[in-house]
Design a protein around this nucleic acid. Sequence first.
RNA 1: GCGGUCGUGGUGAAGCGGUUAACACACCGGAUUGUGGCUCCGGCACUCGAGGGUUCGAAUCCCUUCGAUCGCCCCA
Length: 418
Amino acid sequence: MGIPRGTYDILPNEVTTWHYLEKTAREICARYAYEEVRTPIFEETSLYERGVGETTDIVEKEMYTFLDRKKRSLTLRPEGTAGVVRSFVENKMYGESLPVKLYYFGPMFRYERPQAGRYRQFHQFGVEVFGSDDPALDAEVISLGLAFYRSLGISGVQVGINNVGTPEIRAKYFEKLIEYFAPFEAELDQDAKSRLYRNPMRILDSKVKRTQEIAEGAPSILDSLDKASMENFERVQSYLQELQVPFQVNDRLVRGLDYYTQTAFEFMIEELGAQAGVIGGGGRYNGLVQELGGPEVSGIGFGIGLERVILALKEQNVAIPSTKPMDCFLVTMGEQAQHASVRLLGELRGAGLKAERDYLDRKMKAQFKAANRYKARYVAVLGDEELASGKIQVKQMETGEQKSIAMDQLVSYLLEGK
RNA sequence: GCGGUCGUGGUGAAGCGGUUAACACACCGGAUUGUGGCUCCGGCACUCGAGGGUUCGAAUCCCUUCGAUCGCCCCA
């Protein structure tokens, strides 16, 4: 027996990092007036087929799909947006005052081969905004993402933005691309060939040298945009400038999900390499709410891969705030003292102090060692003498200073020392 | 789904055909039977991911399998 492939345990010493990420995300979202939403970890399979797109890699080969006991097809969520949109529609949030600004945090599942910064169960922090086309929101969402990285202490995050137009524009652009690539068909690599008629935009970011050379001359989607899209794109850029968000226009930026319209963006960090370097991405999805049965309400959001954020934190040696030190370790000598320690320990904890004792009947020396391991600020020694006198020995570990204190004064003494 | 590398104690690792499986750290115990962080001493792998084979003999060679890791596709 072992842990399933592509999954991993987050052990206590790592959990502090996760708390740090969550806390930071929550604080920033609160500042930007986003509220948390928690949706199920699995949904009906059809939600993703319709929402994410039938021809995407995610739906074609990466979903964890299973039948329940009533033979309903369910799928462990491969991404966050579809579920949040479903919830938005189902709970008729479009009836509330718009825009509705939401964020989420949690595990996602994709059946892929594990690799650096890629797991089968991984975690995302994401936001979604519904009900406004205002390009200022596009800029807000991007700057919120960037604020998250910065607030964590990650530097060098690059923002790439593009405008992928409307589905109609993309259809026309596809024709142009096919027209351009067709004469080179024989020179393209296998992957590019298979994409030529299905999704030629994907050829643009190929890593195969010859394909890349050919792709360099391909027409840009920006030249195919209609006036409204172009204006929208320009306004997003000017708002980003207002917010002092550095960005690069990348007309080759393609996202993996079908639902994106207009603005598409990515957060990247160079040190982590080509794959893990994309630490977040998102865009606008103006047709999705309708596609999933809601009214014509537009949306925009991003998903940030937290495993990759953690890679970046480690790469850049960002210090994680450590856990609370132990206020007091109770050393006990003898059975009487062990009994008495139960109550004393309860009192310490009841007073809000972090306190611990030995449970393995260890020798005093070993108990002191344990206290050190816990980084205890004080050690209180309780033995027969103390029980008889009602006074307990309290040692401040850093200075080695030791005092005798009335047992009922211990709590207030420790609270003073904080 | 495809390709490379790897798999020895709690951890980091040596050993690469010859039989008690180095060493370091961690942990436990003792020196110091009521006091930590230093020092010294002792303990801690019937076993080298699993299964099969070659051999007088395998952790060391071969095959299979599982897993990890890195890369490709794709993505966070």
